[in-house]
Amino acid sequence: MSNIFNFTPTVLKNLFHKPVTKNYPAEPAQYPERSRGHIEIDIDECISCGMCVRSCPTGCLAVDRNEGTWTINRFDCIACGYCTLKCPKKCLHLTPGYQTPGPQKKEAVYQKSPEVLEAERKKAAEAAAKAAAAKAAAAAKAAAAKAAAEQAQPAAESAAAAKE
């Protein structure tokens, strides 16, 4: 009959031990540093390349390059962290703290600051102008080369005729 008291030491220990559970929410939950809670973005670092959108397994992200916005549906996000690996600027990161429940599946929209957006547009316009100029220069060069070739051809033909 000694085999019925195996659990007694555990029971006695339990009686005089403080609870192992936390008195949440009075005592806040502690998350480790690596906890995959939710995705955060440094929106002004973002170059709107859309790599995160293409890599997301659940398709919860959206990027608008013209508006300078980055949108996440946090209720669809599974916090796998694949976008943080794919981001070329490393402006996405996982931070502790889980998504809180809500009455609606609202999307969170992050907007770039006007200065950054303006600077980006200026840069894009400059790049476009530069590209257009380069294209025009290349076209002019090609036209000149063609004209030169046309001039050279009759001369070559006449030279060949003279040889005959």
């Binding site: 998350y31 480790p32 690596r34 906890s35 995959r36 962290g81």
Partner: peptide, 15 residues
């Protein structure tokens, strides 16, 4: 597990 991988049940550390 949470301390080392960031997740309690789904680890997401493999690639």
């Amino acid at each position: 597990i949470e301390l080392s991988t960031g997740g309690r049940v789904i680890f997401s550390v493999n690639k």
